[in-house]
Design a protein around this nucleic acid. Structure first.
Lengths: 319, 319
DNA sequence: CTGTTAGCGCCTTCAT
DNA sequence: ATGAAGGCGCTAACAG
């Protein structure tokens, strides 16, 4: 009972399969009466056309892929939320892939979704990605691609990102305005442009106020290691009086270390961070955050992707 | 260049399509030499069989769906993480669908993924779901289904959940052991068994210690409304001295209200909650949490689903 | 407005 | 160990 198909439906109605197919998709060249009859019976059977057959025939999957480093992170989960909303409205399905910041995994994923499984890809690149071949290959295959947040500047595809330099500049200036003089920066490892941009904003702000960096620490995915590095920084001579963290988890690592070594925030150390943690205000003390409009970024990136998909579907000889 | 297919590959090799197909999937009846030749050329072209064609042919999508209320919630994002790990190892793809706790949306989603798009479904039911017809219909269509966390007891499918009664009991007892006498409970709205079970654990603990409920407040999805209800509770006569929140967001709402009405936690009010927020320890004051092993729940539920899928693929006449 | 025919790309008999 | 043929379910092109 689960699976009736178009042909059977057509037989039951004494119609041809094509008429039924057209009727279900609301074609203009089918009489209203027939449409109604068809839809009634289809509903009764809970009929849905087999998606693989129809994708095969149309070379269209009605599916997009979202490739992100991790999902256990408010920024990315809010993005997903935005993407899903837009996709749903478009009648699209969303495949989710997590790279865990691993280049090899990212490559695998992109390889596996190349062949028609999806109509387009949204990606926020892993921070261990150095070689962009896998992305260029998607691009040159003509598969719609959109970057968000962690973009690759060398590849000319649409992208959505916030002005990280500006945001970092302001975040750093906020610390300066509170009287901080020795401001350190905790940055993501890797060569992503976003990492550089956040650092640049920080450096620009320092320079503009005649200050010099009190340390720039490259952190990675492992909390343990990060905490060790942060502890060294905070236990060293000339302890910073402020920290500007490029990503949420580094701010959390900082809080943890401060609790451990009993360093008072914000008395002895002020902390600001990029973060989309809604509960940041409930921290002890409240964490100052640079919040990105993640939900909107997701929506916008998805909308952008659909624009590319639709353009491609309409025109363009891809040869 | 993006899309070469099996037939072209075969031509280029002077082999038949079937041989190539078999070679690529490592069939035993193909000579090693041929396999090597085929794989070499396939790699060179970055060839991947068209998934729609092969899904159509095999009636197998190599895809599962995860249907959850929301993703912006550490519990569910950790679950997703576990699911994705298991799926990836199995070579499966993961479709994500968000219900936003809306019954109509849940129904739509399940309807849309019924017809072969996925080989199985994992779901944590929305709290506005009352009628289970849409789930029963999936079940009786023979589409593998697994519940996790928010299960439906009336439908006999595998599920993964923690012992909510026990956990609630202990959480409540924790408050009692701190000397609390007037403990209120913030619960999710709806008729989900999990809601009842968390309440029951709370009630059991009170009874065991000769206490009576200081209020059971049904909360919903809207933060604003929740805060109003909580404020009323905390401003009323006979203010509770503790709150046991059934879900994370209600604990956060409670903290927000306390900050607003300047009620000191934990001095005047103790709070404990189900929560997977890793930063809960950094709250002011630290939030006592009942943490569920969300990542493992995801892994386990996925493993369970694959078990059902594999069993179905092997045997069973589904008529 | 409706029907007939053909084929999307793959995999699976059934031959050889 | 390999090839030929057919069909999964659908939709698009071409009648009529």
């Amino acid at each position: 009972m689960g699976s009736i198909n178009l042909k059977q439906l057509a037989q039951e109605l004494n119609l041809s399969a094509s008429t039924v197919s057209r009727a279900l998709r609301g074609s203009h060249e089918i009489s209203q009466e027939t449409k109604d009859r068809v839809k009634a019976l289809a509903d009764k059977h809970g009929f849905q056309p087999n998606p693989h057959a129809s994708s095969l025939r149309q070379s269209k999957s009605n599916t997009i892929a979202v490739v992100i480093p991790e999902i256990e992170n408010n920024f990315f989960s809010q993005v997903m939320n935005g993407v899903e909303d837009v996709a749903r409205k478009k009648g699209y399905h969303v495949l989710i892939y997590l790279t865990h910041e691993a280049f090899a995994r990212e490559k695998d994923i992109l390889h596996v979704i190349r062949n028609g499984r999806v109509d387009g890809i949204m990606i926020s690149v892993s921070n261990t990605t150095t070689d962009m071949q896998h992305l260029e290959s998607i691009y040159s295959a003509g598969l719609p691609l959109v970057f968000f947040d962690r973009i690759v500047e060398s590849i000319d595809v649409p992208h959505v990102s916030t002005d990280d330099i500006e945001a970092s500049y302001r975040g750093t200036e906020h610390l300066i305005s509170k009287g901080c003089k020795r401001i350190a920066h905790l940055s993501m490892s890797g060569l992503l442009s976003i990492t550089g941009r956040r650092r640049d904003g920080y450096l620009d702000a320092l320079k503009a106020h005649g200050l010099t960096p009190a340390g720039i620490i490259e952190c990675g995915t492992d909390d343990q290691t990060n905490r060790i590095k942060i502890r060294e920084l905070l236990n060293g001579a000339d302890r910073p009086d402020a920290i500007f963290a490029a990503v949420e988890k580094l701010a959390i690592n900082t809080y943890e270390v401060c609790r451990e070594i009993d360093l008072e925030i914000p008395g002895k150390l002020k902390v600001i961070s990029f973060s989309n943690l809604s509960a940041a205000a409930l921290f002890n003390p409240p964490l100052s955050t640079i919040v990105q409009p993640a939900y909107d970024i997701g929506k916008e990136a998805a909308a952008l992707l659909f624009k590319v998909i639709e353009k491609k579907t309409r025109g363009e000889t891809p040869e």
